[in-house]
Design a protein around this nucleic acid. Structure first.
Lengths: 141, 141
DNA sequence: TTCCTTGCAAAACTTTTGCATTAAA
DNA sequence: TTTAATGCAAAAGTTTTGCAAGGAA
């Protein structure tokens, strides 16, 4: 799931094509930012990083691209707080620690969480997945 | 945790006072809407219900009041999706089903979920709580 | 009086959309 | 050439804020 530096570009192109997404310059740029590592980035942060790298991509395109990637399963969208969503480049099922205050998200390996009991969905529904958020507080150092 | 009809008003006043919140007319109205039952309401929905009942409370006051209640532990705030948060009148630790598409939240009794394994927080943090969201899909009827 | 609360409108933010331009197939 | 993607600016939606007016202590 991680990518070395030298082949990131071609891997991004391959991933996009595998999802029937035309690998345009802007989409490649967004992909290169997000797929470089497992991370949680807001749209604003993606835009900031692209601009820092000299890209002239527009805000609308960043949003369109992130939403498209999420729709096609290349990213997962997460709610950080009331006014920010983040996009998670780790699309494998997993859980999160969420730090009180900052809202920072830290991955929890799915193997770290096991259920002894879990309900079925309400009548007329089927369960799609389970996500655990472990709220933590930074201890004063 | 539930309130009969006849004593809801005085119970709301008592709950507010117990949290050192001055029970003004507007805060009582918001409390009467939310504390009437266990439910998840957006700020907009609270405002709509108040207006339907003839209240002239302003949008700013609804937001201020909901945030104040949440700060003092009378409500829990939840993220429905990227652009809506809801306020949960059930402040006991519990979990949720979330219906795909609508985002509707349905309570899961904490007794329905048991962990066989759960990690400690990352170094330098302590765990405050664990929240489970079980995503479900409505089956075509 | 003094402090707190409210209402209104405007501001601040995040996210989406309409439409003309440009690039891809 | 035909369709799809982009950029810009504006719109839309949610939440917050500044400040004058009103109410509680």
């Amino acid at each position: 799931m991680e990518y070395g530096h030298s082949n990131l570009r071609s891997d991004v192109a391959a991933r996009l094509r595998a999802c029937r997404i035309t690998p345009t310059a802007q989409r490649m740029q967004v992909g290169e930012v997000l797929f470089a590592a497992r991370q949680h980035l807001t749209a604003e942060e993606v835009l900031r990083r692209l601009r820092t790298k000299g890209s002239r991509v527009s805000k609308a395109t960043v949003y369109n691209t992130l939403n498209l990637f999420a729709e096609r399963g290349l990213l997962k969208s997460l709610q950080v707080d009331a006014q920010r969503s983040a996009f998670d480049s780790n699309t494998e099922p997993h859980h999160h620690f969420q730090v009180e205050g900052s809202g920072e998200l830290i991955d929890v390996d799915p193997g770290e969480v096991e259920f002894a009991k879990l309900p079925e969905g309400p009548p007329g529904t089927e369960v799609l997945g389970v996500e655990v958020v472990i709220r933590v507080r930074r201890l004063p150092s």
